[in-house]
Measured scan of single mutants.
Amino acid sequence: MKATFQVPSITCNHCVDKIEKFVGEIEGVSFIDVSVEKKSVVVEFDAPATQDLIKEALLDAGQEVV
């Protein structure tokens, strides 16, 4: 499964690193693409990962998800 999250609070590479760390810890996540320019995060994943778990990880990383 693939999901795109709009994350307007992404401003720098530190944000990218933190997002990759938090989302990458979720079992089932196979790909993460964070774009500072587009302020988006694209995640490819399989169970047990879910969109809700990914959104929670983004929030835990200090990001706003819309």
Results as ranks from 00 to 15, higher is better:
M1W: 11
M1Q: 13
M1L: 10
M1H: 13
M1D: 07
M1C: 12
M1A: 07
K2V: 12
K2G: 05
K2Q: 09
K2T: 11
K2H: 10
K2F: 08
A3P: 04
A3L: 12
A3D: 05
A3W: 13
A3C: 12
T4K: 09
T4H: 11
T4C: 10
T4Y: 14
T4F: 15
T4S: 07
T4E: 10
F5Q: 01
F5W: 06
F5A: 03
F5H: 02
F5G: 00
F5S: 02
F5K: 00
Q6R: 13
Q6I: 14
Q6T: 10
Q6F: 15
Q6A: 10
Q6C: 14
Q6Y: 15
Q6E: 09
V7R: 00
V7Q: 01
V7S: 00
V7F: 06
V7W: 06
P8S: 09
P8V: 10
P8L: 09
P8K: 09
S9K: 05
S9Q: 06
S9M: 07
I10N: 02
I10F: 05
I10W: 09
I10P: 00
I10G: 04
T11L: 08
T11D: 07
T11H: 15
T11M: 15
T11F: 15
T11C: 13
C12S: 14
C12T: 10
C12H: 09
C12M: 08
C12L: 08
C12V: 07
N13S: 12
N13C: 14
N13L: 12
N13F: 11
N13Q: 15
N13V: 15
H14I: 15
H14N: 14
H14Y: 09
H14K: 15
H14R: 14
H14E: 15
H14L: 15
C15E: 11
C15R: 06
C15K: 06
C15W: 10
C15L: 07
C15D: 15
C15P: 05
C15A: 11
V16W: 07
V16D: 03
V16I: 09
V16A: 08
V16R: 09
V16K: 12
V16C: 07
V16Y: 05
D17S: 12
D17E: 14
D17L: 13
D17H: 11
D17Q: 13
K18V: 10
K18G: 02
K18H: 06
K18T: 09
K18L: 12
K18Y: 06
K18D: 06
K18F: 06
K18S: 07
I19W: 03
I19Y: 02
I19R: 00
I19S: 01
I19C: 00
I19P: 02
I19D: 02
I19K: 01
I19T: 01
I19Q: 00
E20H: 15
E20L: 15
E20I: 15
E20Y: 15
E20G: 07
E20M: 15
E20N: 14
E20D: 05
K21P: 01
K21G: 05
K21Q: 08
K21E: 06
K21T: 07
K21A: 08
F22M: 07
F22G: 04
F22P: 01
F22V: 12
F22T: 06
F22E: 04
V23A: 02
V23D: 01
V23R: 01
V23H: 03
V23W: 04
G24E: 04
G24V: 05
G24C: 08
E25Y: 10
E25K: 14
E25F: 07
E25D: 11
E25V: 11
E25S: 14
E25H: 09
I26M: 05
I26H: 01
I26P: 01
I26A: 03
E27Q: 12
E27P: 12
E27F: 10
E27M: 10
E27W: 07
E27D: 10
E27Y: 08
G28M: 00
G28T: 01
G28F: 02
G28L: 01
G28C: 04
V29R: 00
V29A: 03
V29I: 07
V29M: 02
V29L: 03
V29Y: 03
S30T: 14
S30Q: 10
S30V: 13
S30R: 14
S30D: 04
F31I: 08
F31P: 01
F31K: 13
F31M: 10
F31V: 07
F31W: 13
I32W: 00
I32L: 06
I32Q: 00
I32R: 00
I32S: 01
I32K: 01
I32G: 00
I32F: 03
D33G: 10
D33E: 12
D33F: 14
V34F: 05
V34H: 00
V34G: 03
V34C: 09
V34N: 02
V34W: 04
S35F: 05
S35L: 06
S35C: 08
S35N: 11
V36E: 05
V36K: 04
V36I: 11
V36W: 08
E37M: 07
E37L: 11
E37T: 11
E37N: 06
E37S: 12
E37C: 07
K38C: 12
K38M: 12
K38T: 12
K38V: 06
K38F: 14
K38Q: 08
K39V: 04
K39N: 07
K39F: 06
K39D: 05
K39L: 07
K39Q: 10
K39C: 13
K39Y: 06
K39R: 11
S40K: 11
S40I: 14
S40H: 10
S40W: 12
S40L: 14
S40G: 04
S40Q: 14
V41M: 02
V41T: 01
V41P: 03
V41S: 03
V41A: 03
V42G: 04
V42D: 06
V42W: 08
V42M: 11
V42A: 07
V42C: 08
V43G: 00
V43D: 03
V43K: 01
V43E: 01
V43L: 00
V43Y: 01
V43R: 00
V43Q: 03
E44C: 15
E44Q: 08
E44V: 14
E44W: 15
E44G: 11
E44S: 09
F45H: 00
F45A: 00
F45Y: 14
F45G: 02
F45Q: 01
F45L: 01
D46V: 14
D46E: 11
D46G: 11
D46P: 01
D46Q: 13
D46I: 13
D46H: 14
D46Y: 14
D46N: 13
A47E: 11
A47M: 10
A47C: 09
A47Y: 12
A47L: 12
A47T: 09
P48W: 03
P48E: 01
P48N: 03
P48A: 03
P48M: 04
P48Q: 03
P48I: 02
A49W: 04
A49E: 02
A49R: 00
A49I: 00
A49S: 02
A49F: 02
A49C: 05
T50W: 02
T50D: 04
T50H: 05
T50C: 04
T50V: 02
T50P: 01
Q51N: 07
Q51K: 14
Q51T: 12
Q51C: 15
Q51A: 14
Q51I: 15
Q51V: 15
Q51F: 15
D52V: 09
D52H: 11
D52L: 11
D52N: 09
D52Q: 12
D52I: 08
D52M: 12
L53R: 13
L53T: 08
L53E: 08
L53A: 13
L53S: 08
L53M: 11
L53K: 13
L53P: 03
L53H: 07
I54E: 00
I54L: 05
K55H: 10
K55P: 03
K55L: 14
K55S: 05
K55G: 04
K55V: 15
K55W: 14
E56C: 10
E56P: 00
E56F: 10
E56M: 14
E56L: 13
E56D: 10
E56N: 14
E56S: 12
E56V: 10
E56I: 13
E56K: 15
E56G: 11
A57V: 06
A57E: 00
A57L: 03
A57Y: 02
A57C: 04
A57W: 04
L58A: 01
L58R: 00
L58K: 00
L58P: 00
L58T: 01
L58M: 06
L58D: 01
L59I: 13
L59R: 11
L59F: 10
L59S: 07
L59V: 10
L59K: 11
L59G: 06
L59Q: 09
D60S: 14
D60V: 09
D60L: 15
D60Y: 12
D60G: 09
D60I: 11
A61S: 08
A61C: 14
A61H: 04
A61F: 07
G62N: 06
G62R: 04
G62D: 06
G62I: 14
G62H: 05
G62Q: 06
G62T: 09
G62P: 02
G62A: 06
Q63R: 06
Q63A: 08
Q63Y: 15
Q63T: 06
Q63P: 03
Q63K: 07
E64A: 08
E64K: 11
E64I: 15
E64T: 13
E64S: 11
E64Q: 13
V65H: 05
V65N: 05
V65A: 06
V65G: 05
V65I: 09
V66E: 08
V66K: 09
V66C: 14
V66G: 06
V66A: 10
V66P: 05
V66Y: 11
